[in-house]
């Protein structure tokens, strides 16, 4: 019988690396989105990627990397905590924007921002 453990061990590190790398990629995608997307509601989607998918991937990668230790348990707790708080925070931000009367950008022509309008008046 082949001893499978060393291979599993290698696989564990490979998987962990892949997850960490993927998380980092999504982080960057999210960051680019935050900068490039046209309006607030679209940007929230980009922020959502960094908040949830990227973070979860990173944590999963770290859990795999650290193996069966106390650290993994702590990371699991962090993951649960983030699972609860991140969407809630995004919800709260979107809700606040909605309540403040921020309209999403729908067409190609963006009406001037009130502040810019005032600048033009001066």
């Amino acid at each position: 019988m082949i001893d499978i453990m060393p291979y599993l061990e290698i696989l564990r590190y490979v998987l962990a690396g892949a997850l960490l790398f993927g998380g980092a990629v999504f982080m960057i995608i999210g960051a680019v989105g935050m900068l490039r997307l046209p309006d607030f509601y679209a940007r929230i989607h980009a922020a959502g990627i960094t908040d949830t998918l990227a973070t979860v991937m990173l944590i999963a990668g770290m859990m795999l990397h650290s193996g069966f230790t106390q650290t993994t348990a702590k990371l699991a707790l962090v993951a649960i905590f983030l699972f609860l708080t991140s969407p809630t925070a995004t919800h709260a931000v979107a809700n606040a924007a909605h309540k403040a009367g921020l309209k999403p950008r729908l067409g190609k022509v963006q009406p001037p921002h009130p502040r810019d309008k005032m600048k033009g008046a001066k």
Binding site: F81, L84, T85, T88, H91, A92, N95, K99
Partner: peptide, 15 residues
């Protein structure tokens, strides 16, 4: 008092 905050209230009760 606004019902917008029902999500926040539920999550806060857990957190």
């Amino acid at each position: 008092t606004e019902n917008h905050h029902i999500v926040l209230q539920v999550v806060a009760k857990i957190l």
